[in-house]
Amino acid sequence: MTQTLGITVDNISVTYNNARLALYNASCHVQPGTITGLVGPNGGGKSTLFKSIMGFLEPNQGRVSIDGLPIHKAQKRQLVAYVPQADEVDWNFPVSVWDVVMMGRYGYMNLLRIPSAKDRRLVRESLARVGMTDNSDRQIGELSGGQKKRAFLARALAQEGKVMLLDEPFTGVDVKTEKTIIDLLLQLRDAGHTILISTHDLASISTFCDRVILLNQTILASGKTEDVFTEENLAMTFGGLQGNFLIPHNS
């Protein structure tokens, strides 16, 4: 395994417009072919790090590369799939589950985005893998919390990205869906995908994450789950002086 593969975050700092420092000097490496959990308190910069990796915001300094490529090039090659948090989605939008999953395939289509037989097959297969075949005609707002997550997971599957980022996938989902998602992530990892997942759900981390990154305004620790996911480190991340010192008061 060379260091150019996977996700490399090199010395990222992000300051928002209201002068709030969200992330400073964050460097980490997400190893290819692993499931890596991103853990930290609310306001600790998890979403900011995700947005920086995905290129949704421009960091004030630092660089991100995926498989050795700058993020925008990696995205053009359909290497990176993204599963958003539930509250980032407009659930009233007049699209069906099928439409949403098909959006994962746009990058492969011609200018007019006319789906090929392969695109339709992959959408069908992705829906089947998350158990959403029967719901494919429903408007997305009609789904339950767990079904909503699975719909967007299917979109990420349809995109066939080698790298997958999931932002808080277990928020508002039932136990059954959580298990479905975890099983699917394990399958994807075994097939060689690289998965970065942010979560509050500390209990499940050690059951499926190979590696863990602890984040509170900067990277506090990263490495194999058994080495890093210790009580001492968690106390430092969630309750330590370092965290409190930097938690913003204006939000």
């Binding site: 995905m54 995205q75 090659r77 359909q78 990176v80 958003p84 989605v89 959006m103 994962g104 990058g107």
Partner: peptide
């Protein structure tokens, strides 16, 4: 609908 997904697929 989802400008972030538009970015994510390049």
């Amino acid at each position: 609908f989802d400008p972030n997904q538009a970015k994510a697929i390049g």
